[in-house]
């Protein structure tokens, strides 16, 4: 507190009140060895991601004639939207040449039921496990915890049989069902750990008032869950959107997500390659989770750092 300039006002605790702002000291920013090291490291880390991204973006705007010349870092001599148009509207996935938009809508159709089913089921299960006396809750939690570590690949064949018996194999519903089942353990654990921090008194009071499992969930717990819902939403959207294996295994004809379309476009053994359209297609596929992240990113950080009662 020796230097009066080196202080800054902290966030006002309650707006409108005439309280004096709480102040605390802040060290003067200084350039020293440590900050240089951090900057160099951050710059390297940023370059590690940005340079490939740069190549991806500029290549997607080049003509194939220019790409044939090599020089991948050069800017396009002639900017063209054609690769983007081709990737979205005309690219072939097998014999159908209607672009990635087909897969895009399939992905959306997979995403929405998977999100609704996995989040609602997991939230309720997490709530029950955290706040109600459930018989065998400990064992159940342990099993969930173990299930979160089972790789999808080793149970793929049994799951195929399961979906065949349910009569949904080879449809969007099978893909959504498997996504829901496969992500439930980890999402349930996340909800359970979040709800566990809700003070006992709150629930006890609610029990006296109504005592209904669903009313407490709907009127008290859910309104307090905004942060964690956003965390789970971002996690699930990224996970489900980027999935290839589940989509390709359970989708069957007509149920293939955008990633499968992308793989068809990009994977070429003995055919010719249109690098510009491939790059555009890769970017198009990556855009939806990116948008979600940019829009909800602020809440994401809040959600991870906040506890239940702070929400």
């Amino acid at each position: 507190m020796t230097d009066p300039l080196a202080v800054r006002p902290a966030i006002r605790v309650s707006a409108g009140a005439q309280e004096k702002p709480v102040i605390f000291p802040r060290r003067k920013p200084r350039i020293n060895g440590r900050s240089i090291a951090i900057l160099v490291f951050l710059a390297m880390a940023a370059a590690f991601y940005c340079i490939p991204l740069y190549v991806l973006v500029v290549t997607s705007f080049k003509t194939m004639e220019q790409i044939r010349q090599g020089a991948i870092f050069a800017l396009p001599t002639e900017w063209t939207w054609e690769p983007w148009n081709f990737a979205w509207n005309e690219a072939c996935s097998g014999i159908t040449c209607e672009g990635l938009k087909i897969g895009f809508w399939n992905s959306v159709k997979i995403l929405i039921p998977s999100l609704v089913a996995s989040i609602s089921l997991s939230a309720v299960t997490g709530y029950a496990l955290a706040l109600w006396n459930v018989k065998w809750a400990g064992t159940f939690l342990f099993v969930l915890f173990m299930a979160a570590f089972v790789p999808f690949q080793i149970i793929m064949f049994p799951l195929i049989q399961l979906t065949v018996h349910l009569g949904i194999y080879g449809s969007l519903w099978a893909v959504a069902f498997i996504h829901t089942v496969m992500t439930m353990p980890i999402v349930t654990l996340i909800f359970r750990n979040y709800y566990k921090d809700i003070p006992d008194e709150l629930i006890k009071a609610a029990m006296i008032d109504s005592g209904s499992f669903w009313r407490i969930f709907g009127e008290i717990i859910l309104p307090m869950s905004a942060n964690i819902l956003i965390v789970v939403l971002i996690m699930q959207i990224t996970h489900i959107w980027n999935d290839y294996l589940i989509g390709v295994t359970f989708g069957g004809p007509g149920g293939q997500p955008m990633t499968v379309n992308l793989a068809n476009l990009v994977t070429v053994s003995t055919g010719t390659v249109s690098y510009n359209a491939n790059m555009a297609a890769a970017l198009l596929t990556a855009i939806p989770p990116l948008v979600i992240y940019f829009v909800l990113g602020k809440f994401f950080v809040q959600g991870i750092s906040a506890g239940a009662i702070k929400g």
Binding site: A91, C92, G94, I95, T96, N264, T272
Partner: peptide, 30 residues
């Protein structure tokens, strides 16, 4: 497994031939 332009053009030769013979081509490409 074919999706690149020359391959699809070749597939369409087969598809047209199949249609003439009363076969509908349901495609799965992986």
């Amino acid at each position: 497994k074919w999706s690149s332009p020359a391959e699809v053009a070749a597939l369409n030769v087969l598809k047209d031939g199949a249609e003439e013979r009363g076969i509908e081509w349901i495609d799965i490409t992986i």
